[in-house]
Design a binder for these strands. Structure first.
Lengths: 400, 400
DNA sequence: ATGATTATTATAGGATATAATATAACATAA
DNA sequence: TTATGTTATATTATATCCTATAATAATCAT
C-alpha cells in the first residue's frame, strides 16, 4: 500500500519547484519562494539538487529590485532531449525537442496507404534513429520517446490493439521500440496524445479540465481531468466517436447505431459531398470530374477559395460536430473544448457552427459558458503531443 | 500555493489508518501496520490520536495467533452522528446514522406535489430538528448534514440553481440550514449523491471508476473517477440526460434535440405506455380505465404481476437506457455502471435489455467487460448518499 | 560612504516516519 | 511446570525534511 513519508514531501516540493521554473521560464530562487510559499532555504536546497541533476541551470544575474541582484534560473536546454513521433495513416512525423519542447529537428516521411506493417515499423525505427543521431550532447541524453498512434492502444502494455487504417492488430510497439533503442517509450492513441499536447504546449496550458476533440478520418477525444489525462479503467476512455447520436440510424462498422463519427468526421464530409454531387449540385471547384480525387483537405481548400458547396458541406459537418460537443459539455462540464485534427483547419467555417449549436441547445452551457477553441498546433499537434507524453512524465508530481 | 510538509504526511497516513479501520471494521494495530506497510510505531501513535479524538475505540482482545493477544480496534460508533436528507419531489426522507453509516433513526414526510417552497423548507427544517433531537450523545455530536436535491446545484455555494419539479430557483439552501443549526451542510444533486452513496455503502465500494445512472422522472448521472466524485468545472458534470441520442428528434424542453431522458426515464415510460394504449393495446392490468392513474411504480408492479404490455414498455425503456449507457461506456471506460432510482426497481426486466444492447453494440465493451449492476440501496439511496456526502469529507484524504 | 533592501546561504530546531530495543502476553512442547 | 519462541505493543534513538532565524553577499539610494 502507498503511504506518505518525508521522501514524498520532498518529491512533491521538488516537482513544484521544477514546474514553477518551467512555467515562469525565468525566475530566481527568491521568486520561487515567494510564488510557491516554500521557505527560501528549501527552495535553495531543491534548486541545487535540480542543477546537479542537469534539469535546471543558472543564466546569470537578473534585474535588481533595490538590492542584491537575483541569480536567474531556467530549465536547462542541454538537460536532455525528447523524441515525439506522430504515426499518421499516411505519414510519420518525427520531432526532436529539448526538455521544454523547443524543436531542435524534425522529419516527415510519407508512407503509402495500405503499406505493410513491417515496412511502416521499419520507417518508424529509421526516423527515430535519425532523431537520435541529430540529438545534441545533453546531461540526460534522450529521456524518452513518445508515439501517437491512430487506433486503440493499451497504454499500460504499450500495445496497439487495433489501428484499422493501418490494418494493425495487437502490435507490441512499445516493447519493440524499447528493445531496439533501450529508451523509455510511451504510446497512446492520437486523441489522447493530442489532448496532452494541448495541455502542455497548446491552448489548454492554463486549463485543468478540458476535452480535446480530434476530428479526422474518425472522431476521437482526449479527456483532461484535474490536469491529467483520464484514461478510464483500461485506457479506452474517450471513444466517443462511437457514441450514438441517432438511435434510428443503421449500423456503424463498430457494431453500434448512428455513431457520432459518421456525422462529423472527414468520412462524413466526403459522404455528404458525394451525396450532394449525386443530387446534381456542383460548382467550378467541385463537380463530377474530380469527385474521386476529393478529400477533406482539398474540400477545405476549395471552401477557402469560395466553393459554395464545400462551405455548405463543412457547415453541415460543423453542426454535427456541435451536436456531439453539446453531449460532451453536458457530460463533463469542462472549462474548455478544443477542436483539433484535420477538420479544425476549417475553423473559420466550422467553429461558428459549433458555437451556434452549443449556445442554442446546450443545457450546461446556459449555466457555465464553456470556452470553445481550435488547436493552434495544427500539423504538429500529434508529434508535439507525443513529446508531451514524455515531458509530462518527467515533470509529473509523484502519485498521491 | 499548496506545497507539501510533514503535516501533510501525517494527515495522509492518519487517514490511511482511519480508512483501514473503517474498511476492515475490526483490526489490531499490528494488523494495520502489516496491511498498510506503515511502521508499527507510526500506527500506534496515530491510532492513539484517533482514539483521543473519539473516532476510534478499542473493543478488547482478539484471537491470538501464537503470541500476545491483539487489542482490536473499530470505528467508535459513539464518535459522532451524521444526518442525511433525501429531498424528493413528493417526500422528504431523513436518516440519522453513526460514523460508519449504521442507521439510528429515520423519518419520512410526504409533501404535496407543487407545495410552496417555504412550506417544503419548513418541513425540511423540522425533519432535521427531529433528527438532532433523536441523536445519541457522542464525542463530536452531529458532524454534518448532507442533502440530496432533485435539480441543478451549485455545489460550492450550496445553492439550488434550479429544481424544476419543486419549482425552485436560486435557493441558498446550504446557507439557510447552516444558519439555523450551525452545522456544516453539504448539498448536491440527486445523481451525484446517489453515486457517492454507492461508493460508500452500495455496490461501488470496491470500485474507483464508475458511473451511476439515476433513471427517475428524468435521467441524471454521478461520475466517480479515482474514487472521487467528478463535478466538472462548475459542478454541472453528469447532465447526460440531456445528451442527444437522436439528432432528428424534436426539441426537448431543455432546448436540445432528442435528449436521452426523453427515451429512457419514467416520463418516457409513461409516454410510451400511453401511445400503446392509444393504439388499442391493453390487458387486464393496464387499460383505458386506469390510464390517468398510471405511474412508473405502478407499471413496474403490474409488470411483476404479469402485465405483458407493462413488460413490453419496460423492455423498450431498458433498451433505450442501454443506448445511453453504451455512450457512457465508450466515453468513460468505467469499471462499472450502476443503474439506480425508480427504473432500477424493474431490474429483472431492464437489466437484461441493457446487457443485451451493450454486449451487442458497445465498442469499448469488446475490449473491456464493464460490470453492469443495479443499486442495492433502493429507497434509501438518496438519504444514504447524502450521509456519505458528509462521511466522505470526514474520512477523506487531504488534498494532493 | 552609509544605511536600506534584496538575494542567497548557513545553522539550529521541530515534526514525522522508521528502526531498534524493551516489555508484555500468550502458545507450544519438553 | 517450565523453557522457548512468537506476536503485540510501547519506548527510545535516529534520519529526513521543512522552517525560522541569523549571517553573509550584493546592490541601490541618498
Amino acid at each position: 500500500m502507498v503511504t506518505a513519508d518525508q521522501l514524498l514531501v520532498k518529491q512533491i516540493n521538488k516537482s513544484i519547484v521544477l514546474n514553477t521554473i518551467r512555467k515562469k521560464e525565468v525566475i530566481s530562487r527568491a521568486g520561487i519562494a515567494e510564488f510557491t510559499g516554500l521557505n527560501k532555504s528549501t527552495v535553495s536546497f531543491l534548486v541545487d539538487e535540480l542543477i546537479k541533476e542537469g534539469l535546471v541551470k543558472e543564466i546569470g544575474p537578473g534585474e535588481s529590485k533595490g538590492g542584491r541582484k537575483p541569480i536567474m534560473l531556467t530549465i536547462n536546454d542541454k538537460g536532455g532531449c525528447v523524441i515525439g513521433v506522430d504515426l499518421g495513416v499516411n505519414y510519420i512525423l518525427t520531432v526532436l525537442t529539448d526538455l521544454v519542447g523547443n524543436e531542435l529537428w524534425e522529419k516527415k516521411v510519407d508512407i503509402k496507404l495500405g503499406e505493410d506493417k513491417e515496412k511502416v515499423i521499419d520507417l518508424l525505427m529509421q526516423s527515430i534513429e535519425e532523431a537520435i543521431e541529430n540529438a545534441p550532447r545533453t546531461v540526460k541524453g534522450i529521456t524518452g520517446i513518445g508515439i501517437g498512434v491512430p487506433g486503440i492502444v493499451d497504454y499500460r502494455k504499450g500495445t496497439v490493439l487495433m489501428a484499422p487504417n493501418l490494418k494493425w492488430k495487437d502490435v507490441p510497439l512499445k516493447e519493440m521500440v524499447e528493445e531496439k533503442f533501450k529508451i523509455k517509450v510511451h504510446i497512446d492513441n492520437e486523441a489522447n496524445v493530442g489532448a496532452v499536447g494541448e495541455k502542455w504546449f497548446g491552448v489548454g496550458i492554463e486549463c485543468s479540465n478540458f476535452v480535446y476533440v480530434s476530428a479526422g478520418i474518425g472522431i476521437g477525444t482526449g479527456i483532461i481531468i484535474n490536469g491529467e489525462l483520464y484514461r478510464g479503467a483500461s485506457g479506452l476512455a474517450g471513444e466517443i466517436g462511437h457514441a450514438t447520436i441517432n438511435i434510428y440510424d443503421e449500423l456503424c462498422n463498430c457494431g453500434n447505431t448512428g455513431c457520432w463519427e459518421n456525422y462529423a468526421s472527414e468520412r462524413a464530409l466526403l459522404d455528404y459531398m458525394q451525396a450532394q454531387l449525386k443530387q446534381g449540385k456542383q460548382d467550378k471547384y467541385i463537380n463530377s470530374q474530380n469527385i474521386s480525387d476529393l478529400n477533406a483537405l482539398r474540400i477545405i481548400d476549395f471552401a477557402h477559395k469560395g466553393s459554395s458547396i464545400a462551405i455548405e458541406g463543412l457547415r453541415e459537418i460543423g453542426k454535427n460536430l456541435g451536436v456531439g460537443i453539446i453531449n460532451l459539455i453536458n457530460t463533463f462540464n469542462p472549462e474548455m473544448v478544443i477542436s483539433g485534427n484535420t477538420l479544425s483547419l476549417a475553423e473559420d467555417i466550422i467553429l461558428p457552427e459549433i458555437l451556434d449549436e452549443v449556445s442554442k441547445k446546450c443545457f450546461v452551457y446556459k449555466y457555465h459558458k464553456v470556452k470553445i477553441r481550435t488547436s493552434k498546433l495544427k500539423f504538429h499537434a500529434g508529434a508535439m503531443g507525443a513529446v508531451s507524453l514524455v515531458i509530462s512524465k518527467l515533470f509529473a508530481h509523484p502519485e498521491f
